[in-house]
Design a protein around this nucleic acid. Structure first.
Ligand code: MN
Ligand code: MN
Ligand code: ZN
Ligand code: ZN
Lengths: 135, 135
DNA sequence: CCCTCTTTTAGAATTATTCTAATTTAGTTA
DNA sequence: TAACTAAATTAGAATAATTCTAAAAGAGGG
């Protein structure tokens, strides 16, 4: 049994705790990178690429994982979403940096006021360049 | 001459003021929708799809236009970026709502502190659902 | 241990986007 | 205005990320 906590995490969202899901989720939780489906598949070659995509879709649906569209390539990057955080993308290197030093409370309240919707989530990507580097 | 202001806007960013660029830019400025390349092409059929893509890429490069990845479809949506603003996406309808009632100053400062980078831009997408509607 | 619904899978299909290479054009210069 | 040239446009082909299909396997409940 890979990990009872992961098993519970999946089942509490109504997902069966398959070997593939446990493996992919553990991979995302233990790696600082923000891999694409293909990168995950390269590291977990025994799991079919179709299952990598299916699993990521499910994990995103229930909110355990988020998608990052960097605009730096045309691939989706995935990220275990333990605690709310946002992403800073280095336009020179395409590196994706995690950051959590920003309170989204005001943003949620502003969005609720502007739209009248019940806010369920957010994506923030901030782009930057290294000192003395062109955009 | 379509509009001298648009012409200046392009030339000030080092872009030649072609008929196609002026037309596409005007289209984005005068439509509240957040169209895909294909939607723009449907409305401006005399401009080739390749040029639509090329032009949007250039306009995004210089910051006049931004890309919105809604996660609701697998197409990029484009938006004239006159004033800084963010997007609220209705998960039920996939509608994209413009909002500017949020000051990004603190976000920029937080991102600078977290990364050491010079911040050049940002994307914020907030997701929400209508009252009494499931996610 | 069954049963049933869900999940996995290989491979094919789709399609948004990119590429190519030939033609046209914007903006500059004389 | 005419000539020049680097940049832009274009049709169509190519690419490749993602989705689909339908058959086999597995998870979890009873
Ligand atoms: Mn985004
Ligand atoms: Mn694609
Ligand atoms: Zn992250
Ligand atoms: Zn907008």
């Amino acid at each position: 049994m890979i990990n009872q906590t992961l098993r519970d995490m999946l089942q509490s969202h109504g997902l069966k705790a398959t070997f593939q899901r446990l493996t992919i989720l553990e991979y995302l939780m233990t790696h600082e990178t923000h891999p694409t489906a293909e990168m995950i598949h390269d590291n977990l070659p025994s799991i079919s690429l179709a299952t990598i995509y299916n699993t990521l879709d499910k994990l995103v649906d229930v909110g355990i994982v988020i998608v990052i569209d960097t605009l730096k390539d045309d691939k989706r990057h995935y990220d275990y979403y333990g605690e709310p955080h946002y992403h800073i993308i280095n336009s020179n290197t395409s590196e994706i940096i995690d950051a959590d030093n920003f309170d989204v409370t005001q943003l949620f309240e502003a969005a609720r006021q502007a739209s009248g919707l019940n806010i369920t989530g957010f994506h923030i990507e901030v782009y930057g360049v290294g000192p003395n580097q062109a955009k």
